[in-house]
Design a binder for these strands. Structure first.
Length: 489
RNA sequence: GGUACCUUGGCCGAGUGGCUAGGCACCGGUCUGCAAAACCGGCUACGGCGGUUCGACUCCGCCAGGUACCUCCA
């Protein structure tokens, strides 16, 4: 089978065949969370998008080193609190150590990602653990003449860089446009140009997160960590760098500049960006205050939520849209995802029970190929899901006796259905009700339903309907079969 | 203001120069004592106006509306 994986490269703005620099080894770096608040729906998108890519590349036989950072320093805030570090601010407000904040939210981030069945990256480095590397990066850039020190801080000289290399190759920005387009920011006077960005920032006396450096006691600049850690774990040149589209400029643009200025190499072959999740057509984001945390989603504890949505519902909801499209949040859409996924998962059980015929009219290989084709076309998970629904129809038709399938095709069908639904899309059966694992309860419900069967045999429908209604109220759904019954909670 | 992108049926969402995904909802039918589930069928859309074309939802232009980035954000 030829599996040509095609991915959309933000750098070329085209779909390109994915050819690793050093196949079968693949290096992938994805921008992770800044751990100063709970993860929200927006964080789930890149996590799931790149989890999908990670899983699929591994399935194709690539040996992937997946690095996703934890940002726990830097990232100045720029609203009311001029130049205060996000982590530091939170720590001051809560009267705790910055690293306490980091630990707390990192643990919570992991917990939510685990629930979403997002596989842990191969390496999850922290910015605070790589201050030395970031200082080295800064030194190198100064050495190469693309940065200057000013009042204890170090800034990247964008104009000079732009003369030798081109600044703006990722975002399409032109430096001339940036001249007329800037605002007054902290440290403006220290910079030669307003669009120069910090590699190292001198800490003000009240700034609690600080490290020594050749230039000052301070902290690394906004974009340094990804360059430093990407370089450390993946080398001068690696295959994939991912993140949200909102990071494209300035973050990723600055990373490219740093990489090129320090190593002379372009570093990243494929830039991949996921689109945003919107709510009422507007980006869901921290600064807009219109975000819903994953915890709220899972518990249903937010005013805009009509009910709680399980982690797998969220995962499926996200996968039902292509990663480069915006995805609009709504209760209706979430509930549609919930029901659709439940049907697919039930299909897995039905599939297990199917009996093959000597002859069949089902071609399962086609399904399998269709799914591969969809994945290969820039990870088109919605199409994969559409094919799975087609397969579901087939499965149900076979069970209903309207279609037949031979042993070989049944095996292929089982293999492909499970492969794509579980291994690649990464959904899983939810172990929602511990009650269904309770043997006593099972026996009791079976006993009551046997009584109901008797009532039905005696045509005592008043009793049988009463039993069904009461069990329904308790959340138990009954399905009468030809000879017997099934139930589920 | 600059740059990029988007506009698909009740809702969510794929996609293609002609063959009109999929899900959810809704409506009919089959099955069932009645249901549920399942199956069959229906609802068959591509912002507006022009242009290119034998033919455009798909290409081009204009207009309208919306979004993102330009400052931290996934």
């Amino acid at each position: 089978m030829d599996n040509k994986l095609i991915v959309y490269n933000s750098l070329s703005r085209k779909k390109e065949e994915f050819k690793p620099i050093n196949s079968p080894l693949v290096g992938m770096y994805v921008c992770g969370p800044t751990v100063y608040g709970d993860a929200h729906l927006g964080h789930a998108r890149p996590a799931i998008t790149f989890d999908l890519l990670f899983r699929y590349m591994k399935h194709l036989g690539f040996k992937v080193r997946y690095v996703r950072n934890i940002t726990d320093v830097g990232h100045l805030e720029n609203d009311a609190d001029e130049g205060e570090d996000k982590i530091g601010k939170k720590a001051r407000l809560e009267q705790i150590e910055p690293m306490e904040v980091v630990e707390y939210y990192t643990a919570r981030y992991h917990r939510e990602m685990d629930k979403l069945n997002v596989q842990r990256p191969s390496i999850e480095p922290r910015a605070s653990g790589h201050i030395i590397e970031q200082i080295e990066l800064t030194k190198k850039i100064i050495e190469n003449g693309f940065a200057y020190e000013s009042n204890g801080s170090v800034y990247f000289d964008v104009e000079k860089y732009n003369k030798q290399h081109k600044y703006g190759i990722l975002s399409g920005r032109v430096l001339d446009d940036l001249y007329s387009n800037t605002r007054d920011l902290d440290g403006q006077s220290e910079k030669r140009n307003s669009f120069d960005f910090a590699l190292w920032k001198k800490a003000s006396p009240e700034h609690i997160m600080r490290w020594p450096s050749p230039w000052s006691d301070g902290f690394p600049g906004w974009h340094a960590e990804c360059s430093a850690m990407g370089h450390k774990y993946l080398g001068d040149e690696f295959d994939i760098h991912g993140g949200g589209m909102d990071l494209l400029f300035p973050h990723h643009e600055c990373e490219i500049a740093q990489n090129t200025a320090s190593t002379g190499k372009n570093t990243v072959k494929y830039w991949i960006h996921n689109n945003m999740i919107t709510i009422n057509g507007q980006k869901m984001g921290k600064s807009l205050g219109n975000f819903i945390t994953l915890e709220d989603l899972f518990n249903g504890t937010n005013e805009v939520l009509e009910k709680a949505y399980s982690p797998m519902t969220i995962r499926f909801f996200i996968l039902q849209a292509h990663y480069r499209s915006t995805l609009d949040f709504s209760n209706e859409a979430l509930q549609a995802a919930e029901k659709g996924l439940a049907r697919l998962l039930k299909g897995v059980e039905t599939l297990e029970k199917l009996k093959p015929s000597n002859q069949g009219n089902i071609d399962a290989k086609e399904l399998k190929n269709n799914c591969y084709q969809a994945m290969n076309d820039d990870l088109n998970s919605p199409i994969v899901i559409a094919h799975l629904f087609d397969a579901l129809k087939t499965i149900n038709s076979i069970e209903a006796g309207k279609e037949t399938i031979d042993t070989e095709n049944l095996n292929v069908l089982k293999e492909a259905f499970n492969l794509f639904l579980f291994d690649i899309l990464g959904t899983q059966k939810e172990t929602q009700n511990t009650a269904t694992n309770n043997e006593v309860l099972k026996d009791v419900v079976d006993m009551v339903l046997n009584l109901r069967m008797q009532a039905k045999t005696n045509k005592d429908y008043a009793t049988s309907d009463f039993i069904r209604d009461e069990l329904t109220k308790l959340g138990i759904t009954i399905k009468d079969k030809k000879d017997g019954f099934e139930w589920e909670m």
